[in-house]
Computed example of a mutant assay.
Amino acid sequence: MDSALLDALIQPTRTTLATEFWGKYENPSFNNFGINLVHFWEYYHSACRQALHDGGRHTAVRSHNDVVDVIRMLKSGVVRGEVRTVLRSKLSRKHDNEDEMLENAIDLAASLILMCDFGITSLSFSGRTELKWRHGTLQEFLADYFKDPPALSHEGMKLEKTFLARNLTRIGGIEIIWTENLVDHLRLSDDDTKVHIFHHASFLEYQMHSTESLLPDGLAAETLQTLALLCPSKDRETSRWLSRLPSLDKRLGHCGRLKTELRQIERFRFWRDRLIMLKQAYDETQPKTLTQWWHDRRNGVQWYTFWVAVLVLVPTILFGLIQSVEGALQVYASFKSLED
């Protein structure tokens, strides 16, 4: 645990860190869920690498123990200012950018325990939503951030069985950005041409069954429900589609399948408005390619009309082309006979 942040994580260290972060899981059959945090540890390593850029001069943490010390304070409800004071007392010498180092250390710990971007220092613009926590406890900040009730009207809106992640792309032409930032889940960007989906289902399962998760009650469970909505289990085409995306959490395709009563939009609270905006963006798309026309069965009458027109048009063009060729051959034969 006292090893450097960028050292390779051995399994005992991973187990200890997971327990320190989220406590022990309560469900006795947890290991039967097929949960694997391998993608979380990739995220952990990547976040630590970003925090330690430029020789680590922008953060006050250096080892896994340093991160755990901060997380213990966050979990115990210590306000941010007091955490900063404790970390300042541990510095071995004065630094010109001392305040920056302390703030970044706290942000890194909060990002790691929640998989939410608290403004981890990076040399490049990430394009991700960054949470700005500066006062009070982490629990208070999260409760305030996720407290707003849904605001958009959902009258007459239905989440059909065809409202799937793979159809967002192959029918709607909406590009999926698989994100590691929970607060970006279901966020539309680039004029509604892209949607961000949080794919770390194993992390969410751990949060739902752990004894010390800091996520607001119900958030992990509802996020898993949105994944079950978009990537239902035992859907053959979805399984084949996900199998071609090896960089994603394998648990993503095993989140369950929502029954009709659970597909009602009012069942969602945290992500309802984003689901509404995504569904509206998807419904407003029109197929642009033959492949999209073939898969787009949202409007049965339109689909049949289009393909009947294609079936009529193609033979018409083909026969017209044949007649044109025959006519050209006849003209050529006539000139040939006159020459002879």
Rank of each mutant, 00 (worst) to 15 (best):
L112D: 06
L112R: 05
I113L: 11
I113D: 06
I113H: 03
I113M: 11
I113K: 02
I113V: 11
L114C: 09
L114S: 15
L114N: 14
M115L: 13
C116N: 07
C116Q: 10
C116K: 12
C116E: 15
D117F: 00
D117A: 09
D117G: 01
D117Q: 14
F118I: 14
F118D: 02
F118C: 06
F118Q: 10
F118N: 10
F118Y: 14
G119R: 14
G119W: 04
G119Y: 08
G119A: 04
G119D: 05
G119K: 02
I120H: 11
I120F: 02
T121G: 06
T121M: 12
T121L: 07
S122W: 03
S122M: 13
L123K: 12
L123I: 14
S124M: 15
S124F: 13
S124Y: 12
F125C: 10
S126C: 05
S126F: 03
S126R: 15
S126Q: 11
S126M: 04
G127L: 02
G127Y: 08
G127C: 09
R128W: 10
R128A: 12
R128Y: 08
R128C: 08
T129D: 08
T129M: 08
T129L: 10
T129I: 11
E130R: 12
E130H: 10
E130S: 14
L131V: 04
L131D: 04
L131C: 05
K132C: 10
K132H: 07
K132I: 13
K132M: 12
K132S: 15
W133Q: 04
W133G: 03
R134F: 04
H135K: 14
H135T: 08
H135R: 12
H135I: 13
H135N: 11
G136M: 02
T137S: 13
L138R: 07
L138M: 15
L138Y: 08
L138W: 06
L138H: 13
Q139M: 07
Q139V: 08
F141R: 04
F141I: 05
L142A: 01
L142G: 06
L142F: 04
A143I: 01
D144P: 00
D144I: 00
D144V: 07
Y145C: 02
Y145P: 09
F146R: 00
F146E: 02
K147W: 03
D148W: 03
D148N: 11
D148A: 06
P149G: 05
P149R: 08
P149V: 01
P149L: 05
P149H: 03
P150E: 01
A151V: 14
A151Y: 15
A151M: 06
A151Q: 07
A151D: 14
L152W: 04
L152S: 13
L152I: 10
S153T: 06
S153K: 06
S153P: 09
S153M: 00
S153D: 12
H154F: 08
E155Y: 13
E155R: 09
E155F: 03
E155K: 09
E155Q: 05
G156L: 01
M157K: 10
K158W: 00
L159A: 00
L159E: 01
L159K: 00
L159G: 01
E160I: 00
E160L: 05
E160Y: 00
E160P: 00
K161G: 13
K161I: 02
K161C: 09
K161F: 03
K161M: 04
T162C: 11
T162E: 10
T162M: 07
F163R: 06
F163L: 02
A165I: 03
A165G: 09
R166D: 05
R166Q: 14
R166E: 15
